[in-house]
Design a protein around this nucleic acid. Structure first.
Lengths: 251, 251
DNA sequence: CGCTTAGTTGAACGGAGTCAATCCGCGTGG
DNA sequence: CCACGCGGATTGACTCCGTTCAACTAAGCG
């Protein structure tokens, strides 16, 4: 029996019951593959499905009137994508593969049914969504208040931290399969200034680059330098409802 | 029987059953009052409860190392606050009353139980949370890519739009009980530049100010000018699970 | 009536954008 | 095997939006 990415993710926070595990695997039957650069869903297109990331990197972004792009979020294995758009019939953002990826496609209705059959998992999804919202808030703060150097350092630390939780990231180095333009679109800088800031980061000796492989030589010191707060640790689950057969609705 | 704020909000999206209405009202028993400026929850403090806004304005913010502040979100009647922090035992942000407010305090466990007893409401909460996330993404985009004039215009349009949905806002004018420093903390500008941008907005004739009362004379034209997208309309509910007694967990 | 907080305005500075040239790695085709 | 072309990375010069610093005014309040 293979380990499913979403199951693995959630099991990180909770001791899942057999039925819960079963239900999660049930969601991951329709597998699809995309090549690096492929657009999975375009902004404004109708969305009937959510996608669980099976492997690879993706990002979601919006395009402005002048053609400029804002990258909102990166997705890694075990993440659920297009939840952003679940509130509408049309996608609020473009979902694009950064590297080669596999996705599990699940119809929205099936996701909705999960709330009914496994309320505890529904509540856990809510909590995960909340933590993602905090993470987005952190980036807003970073973009709003910090200079380029700090924004990029924060992005690197954030990505590394998520890869560590999500992937089996061992050492201090990791691949960042993004162009400098992409980085700029994520943190609100031009590619020119991204380049300058990356150089400045290297100059401190805290970050090394080899092509698109990044190595942070002293994570703690860099984190201290830019006041980075890691949000990707454990999440509180003590408030979740009891597991098992849901209580009947009383009058 | 009084109309509860949360009930009214959710009924906007869904035909609620009697049992669901009952459950929502059940959440709103512990009422508390706060004066303008009061801090309800401080960043880092333990949180055991969520708060439904009964009346008034609030905002949540984070404080940076240098004392600078980033306002993440404003809350109005019917909003659920501190959901941001539900994933942790300690608050991720400071919740502060902007005007005099009343809040309904609900223990996290009771909120969790809502997912079990009324899965459809749980899923709806998830959708609302998703739409808030999109809204936050819009602000990230605005702060990341737009100049001061546009950022503030967007904030004004956004607040007006939310007040219109949430409150019985009739005309084109509304009170903005914020200092220019507050506005700056929300959109990432200094108070100096907020002032200049407000002046510039007035100069276009599209916005009038009288103290803290704002009047947008031509909403459509201002929206067109700054490429504003209103996210606070209806949300899709067709994917929600069926109402009624939850299905038993099958083997 | 002073004191404090918020709003307003001016001058100078600087971080990041803009524009533009150059370099580099890599795939493609001759 | 090498010339060519292309997308991305790098670097420099100049400009400008927003900050910083610093008055000064207006308004609320004890």
């Amino acid at each position: 029996m293979t380990v499913s990415p979403l199951e693995a993710r959630l099991a990180h926070h909770l001791d899942l019951t057999f039925a819960e595990r079963e239900a999660l695997r049930w969601l991951e039957r329709r597998e699809k593959s995309y090549a690096a650069g492929d657009v999975v869903v375009r902004e404004g297109a109708p969305v009937e499905c959510l996608y669980i990331v099976g492997s690879g990197w993706l990002h979601s972004s919006v395009t402005l009137r002048d053609g400029d792009r804002q990258i909102l979020r990166f997705y890694f294995i075990g993440d659920i994508t297009t939840t952003l758009s679940i509130a509408w019939h049309h996608s609020a953002a473009t979902l694009q593969a950064v590297s080669d990826t596999t996705l599990f496609e699940i119809p929205k209705e099936m996701f909705g049914d999960l709330f009914r059959r496994h309320p505890r998992l529904g509540a856990l999804m809510f909590a995960i969504s909340a933590s993602e919202q905090v993470s987005l808030g952190d980036r807003l703060t970073s973009v709003s208040k910090n200079d380029g150097f700090t924004r990029i350092a924060t992005l690197l630390l954030d990505v590394r931290s998520r890869l560590r939780v999500v992937d089996d990231l061992r050492g201090s180095s990791f691949e960042l399969p993004l162009t400098q333009k992409d980085i700029g679109d994520a943190v609100g800088l031009t590619k020119t200034h991204v380049n300058r800031s990356l150089k400045a980061l290297e100059a401190t000796g805290l970050v090394e680059r080899d092509g698109r492989v990044i190595r942070i030589t002293d994570i703690d010191r860099l984190a201290e330098l830019v006041d980075f707060r890691d949000r990707h640790g454990a999440i509180a689950t003590d408030w979740l409802p009891a597991v098992g057969a849901p209580a009947p609705v009383n009058a």
